[in-house]
Design a protein around this nucleic acid. Structure first.
Lengths: 121, 121
DNA sequence: GAAACTAGTTTCCAATTGGTAACTAATGCA
DNA sequence: TGCATTAGTTACCAATTGGAAACTAGTTTC
């Protein structure tokens, strides 16, 4: 018996921990999942649409989080030459690979609420 | 056309936002997902095992996060009357419903790493 | 009796996060 | 001319988060 646990840790666990850390870093902060979720439902949306749709977010936060998401290539930013200039945001194909995560998180949240009330009913 | 968008928001979006907020609150902080992930892999584990297994966590953080997870009934805490007293932590059946989320997050992290290197290869 | 191991707790500090409110700059409308 | 709308930015501030290190306290081993 010569430290089998340490081997087990190095191989399986570390890769997993790195993977989880990466994902959570990309989704860090209070708003990114909500922005992605809203854009996944709404398709192409403008800044002001998002500001109105996502309850409680401030312009500063929305702006910063959109920049982060764009840097990670999860969304695209397109300036449209309308009367007052508008900017459209859209989830990329790559960004759409986040959908299973967001769905699982949303599902669990519903499950959680149901459990808090009557599970016997 | 009398504000159809607002209706759409109230019905679909708000429930989803609440659900996501709930889940993320239960998983809040830097360590909860790692602790759950480690316990899901390792089964019944002691405090010191977790401290050694989860790279970088401090005793204070581990202690606090374990308390949070126990309060939310995702794990159980059992004091064992060994020579120096030990405490065992284990994921509950309810806690195991988090597994799909953690798996999706870990999967995406692996996908993310692969994409950063060679996707053409 | 000293050192080590168990499972934490306490204190103190630094960095990050996120919120409010005011401001910019370009354009259109009355 | 003055107000509204677009998409932000800036400055300031408060709360939360998390990390290091030292400490507690009981038991066992050398």
């Amino acid at each position: 018996m010569i430290k089998r646990k340490a081997v087990k840790k190095s191989l399986e666990c570390k890769v997993r921990i790195t993977a989880i850390t990466d994902t959570m870093q990309v989704l860090s902060g209070k708003w990114k999942i909500h922005i992605l979720g809203t854009l996944l439902q709404g398709g192409r949306m403008r800044f002001m649409d998002l500001l109105r749709e996502i309850d409680g977010i401030a312009a500063k936060m929305l702006s910063k989080e959109l920049q982060d998401l764009e840097m990670n290539q999860l969304i695209t930013r397109t300036v449209v030459d309308t009367k007052p200039i508008t900017v459209e945001y859209e989830v990329t194909e790559y960004g759409k690979t986040m959908e299973p995560i967001i769905d699982e998180i949303a599902n669990w949240g519903v499950f959680y609420r149901n459990r808090l009330h009557g599970k016997a009913e």
